[in-house]
Design a protein around this nucleic acid. Structure first.
Length: 395
DNA sequence: TCTGGGGTCCTAGGACCC
DNA sequence: TCTGGGGTCCTAGGACCC
């Protein structure tokens, strides 16, 4: 499968995924837990079962809300994965060690591994705390002098170098996929976890990618997967057999057309090294559902605190926003949102609180509430004069 | 055994303006 | 009094991702 446009140079895009990131950071701190099933999740220390060695809590007898954010490979072998409720996980793996999340530590190691990679290859796109894309085009071109016969072999050698510098900087392992684009690299990095490097050359798409489940495509989630399954489409290869018009009929103009291209491994998105944030939010799920009338005082206090925390985030990061949003999840998990656009962008807690309070008046309060959230969008940087395109100003 | 918290992007309808 | 089409903003919800 050669590039459709011969004028476009070949691309070498890497996707780097840290292995069981949060859990691996915890194992640096508690090396005695290596080899044992460990999960990270839940909230601040609450009373649950102590382990036999009396040092670490186990999942046994865990009650309360919360999900697993990361599990070690030993825990995954017991059927315990990220996103799973902790109470369910406790049934499957009662003796697994449960550690509370320490985001400050994870952010620190995130910075360490990203800085180490950037020192080698500066074209890095952030995809969250434990993932990046890297455009290796320059680095591959620069190593031509090495005299390596095949550019993909050079790319693979670069991936091994990146794994080494990440390990030296953090003590952690990662998996890397290298292909001509982000879509395929994201798939590739998962093929040899943990600690692997996988290369998919353009000609390998049929043999390597098509046998995989459609769910492996980043962008096909649980809903689209279920619908595809009902339509008799299980693998990416089967998806590639469907014609574009049919997919558009089933999934809409934009999504259907995207699926058609994704199944063929086509993706021209560039590696984007920086982008402005679109919104900043804070939300919290209560330990027990709160009643809008009986628990009004507590709800009000939490509501105000969320506004203060969002305002603090805005101020720290240097943004103001003019769309103030409220999010409520009821005890039946139904979620509603309301928002209100104000005239002047703000980063002030009281202003946010007032606007969010207006939003609150527009939501039904006839059920218990499970989650409350506050969001500020349509961000700008205060003090930065925005360019105007109003032609009347120049006539 | 119900499902965290922080995000992005897309769709769709209505208001409003030209 | 009625009828257009296009563009942009606002709002609500939902899919998806890490």
């Amino acid at each position: 499968m050669e590039s459709a446009n011969p004028a476009r140079p070949a691309r070498y895009i890497a996707h780097l995924d840290m292995d069981a990131f949060y859990a691996s950071v915890e194992l640096l701190r508690y090396p005695q837990l290596r080899g044992r099933p460990v999960v990270v999740g839940g909230r601040r220390r609450v009373a649950y079962g102590e382990s036999a060695d009396d040092r670490f809590a186990t999942l046994r007898g865990y009650t309360g809300r919360g999900v697993i954010t990361t599990s070690t490979y030993e825990a995954r072998a017991l059927g315990v994965f990220s996103g799973m409720g902790l109470m369910k996980a406790a049934k499957l793996a009662p003796d697994a060690i449960l550690l509370p999340a320490d985001f400050e530590a994870y952010r620190k190691y995130s910075r360490l591994f990203k800085d180490a990679v950037r020192a080698m290859a500066p074209e890095v796109e952030d995809r969250g705390i434990d993932e990046i894309y890297i455009d290796l085009g320059e680095a591959v071109a620069a190593s031509v002098a090495d005299g390596a016969p095949d550019s993909w072999a050079r790319a693979r050698a670069l991936a091994l170098d990146i794994q080494r510098v990440v390990r030296e900087a953090t003590g952690l392992s990662c998996s890397i996929g290298i292909t001509p684009n982000k879509l395929l690299s994201k798939i590739a990095s998962e093929l040899n976890k943990p600690g692997g490097v996988s290369v998919i050359r353009p000609d390998d798409v049929h043999s390597v990618v098509w046998p995989l489940a459609v769910r492996k495509i980043n962008g096909i989630g649980p809903r689209a997967n279920a619908k595809l399954e009902k339509l008799g489409v299980r693998t990416i290869g089967e998806l590639a057999q469907k014609d574009a018009a049919w997919l558009v009929e089933q999934f809409g103009r934009s999504y259907g057309a995207w699926m058609y291209r994704a199944a063929r491994g086509e993706d021209e998105r560039p590696v984007v090294t920086w982008s402005e944030p679109k919104s900043i939010s804070r939300e919290t799920t209560f330990e027990d559902d709160l009643h809008p009338v009986r628990d009004k005082a507590r709800l009000t206090a939490i509501f105000t605190e969320l506004c203060q925390r969002v305002a603090g985030d805005l101020q720290r990061k240097g943004y103001s926003g003019k769309t103030i949003g409220l999010k409520i999840r009821y005890d039946n998990f139904q979620t509603v949102t309301r928002d209100l656009t104000i005239d002047i962008p703000t980063q002030d807690a009281k202003t946010i609180r007032r606007a969010a309070g207006e939003c609150l008046k527009r939501v039904p309060l006839d059920r218990r509430i499970r989650l409350l959230g506050v969001r500020v969008g349509t961000l700008s940087r205060p003090g930065v004069v925005l360019e105007t395109h109003d032609p009347s100003l120049f006539e």
